[in-house]
């Protein structure tokens, strides 16, 4: 009984860390315009809309976060192998991973923007200076919490995977959660605030992203402010629930039917969530915005 209580406590702690990680991850990726919103940021200058938005094209979020977290975990693992204090090792690992992330971010912005010279998109060097550090700070929070969570799962719950492999698995999961949950708020809505909600993205509107703010020009930092209000916490809840349910079902149901209990519990949780998702989706479509069948087909075609 005590073992189960301890396990549930660790699950809750890991879930809390994952919630923070998910929120920070989505804020980071939206500030940098990584993932699917990136395609419109990349397209805008080609349609004649010069903008001052960061263009952080480092593959999709899942592989990118797979690297940052696996890297932090790998360095932490190496430092722990030479008898470093675990907390210090995790912090140094995350810091080095974030350095790599920052360098990749700058080369992506410089590379993509310089390659758009034909469309007269200049490189705004002040964006590089002000936004990169902010994405790095958010990435540090996301990477450090995820790698700490992996460390807890291994040390406290006795998971057999070594830290770097655990980091790779959960890093990819973190990137996928942020990319799937948070990005639509930014990529589908915030970039297209001047079009009706739920209107989808007609071809004629491609690249016509919002470039001006309440005062002056929209900066990617505004996206951080926006994301931290809605999309970030949503991604955090998503990733937190993934981690919590994953650990919770294993701890509670593993003794049943030689381990199959946990598998069945997992399948039941997925089915329950599919039903909830569908209900929330239809409720949102009915309650908000002009949603017509025509717009739906268009949205699907461009998605």
């Amino acid at each position: 009984m005590e073992e189960i209580l301890f396990g549930i406590g660790i699950s809750a702690l890991a879930g809390a860390l994952a919630t923070v990680a998910g929120a920070a991850e989505d804020t980071e990726s939206d500030i940098g315009s990584q993932g699917d919103p990136n395609s419109q940021v990349q397209l805008a200058p080609q349609m004649g809309y010069i903008h001052r938005i960061y263009n952080k094209a480092i593959s999709g979020e899942p592989p990118a976060y797979g690297l940052w977290v696996a890297l932090a975990a790998g360095i932490a693992w190496a430092l722990m192998a030479i008898q470093y204090n675990a907390i210090l090792a995790l912090i140094i690992g995350s810091a080095v991973a974030v350095f790599v992330q920052g360098v990749y971010a700058t080369t992506a912005y410089l590379g993509r923007t310089a390659s758009l010279a034909k469309f007269e998109q200049p490189v705004y060097i002040d964006i590089l200076k002000s936004v990169t550090t902010v994405t790095m700070a958010h990435a540090f929070v996301a990477v450090f919490t995820t790698v700490t969570m992996c460390f807890l799962i291994i040390e406290a719950l006795g998971h057999p995977f070594p830290l770097p492999l655990m980091g790779l698995v959960w890093g990819i999961a973190l990137g996928a959660a942020g990319s799937a949950t948070g990005n639509p708020f930014y990529g589908k809505e915030r970039q297209y605030q001047n079009y009706p909600f739920g209107a989808g993205l007609p071809i004629s509107a491609s690249g016509d992203i919002v470039r001006y703010a309440e005062a002056g020009q929209r900066s990617s930092l505004d996206n951080g402010w926006f994301t931290s209000k809605g999309a970030g916490p949503a991604s955090g809840i998503c990733f937190g629930l993934i981690v919590f349910f994953e650990l919770w079902r294993t701890i509670l149901f593993e003794p049943f039917a030689a381990g199959w209990g946990a598998v069945i519990a997992g399948a039941v949780i997925i089915i329950v969530f599919m039903v909830i998702d569908r209900m929330v989706e239809t409720w949102a479509r009915k309650t908000y915005g002009p949603y017509t069948t025509e717009a739906a087909t268009e949205e699907e075609a461009t998605a």
Partner: peptide
Amino acid sequence: GCVLATIFMLGAIAIQHPFNACLGP
């Protein structure tokens, strides 16, 4: 120790990044 997992990701991102970052007209 699965250091190979980290090396795998380092290589995979490093090989795709240059062209992915610099693509354009």
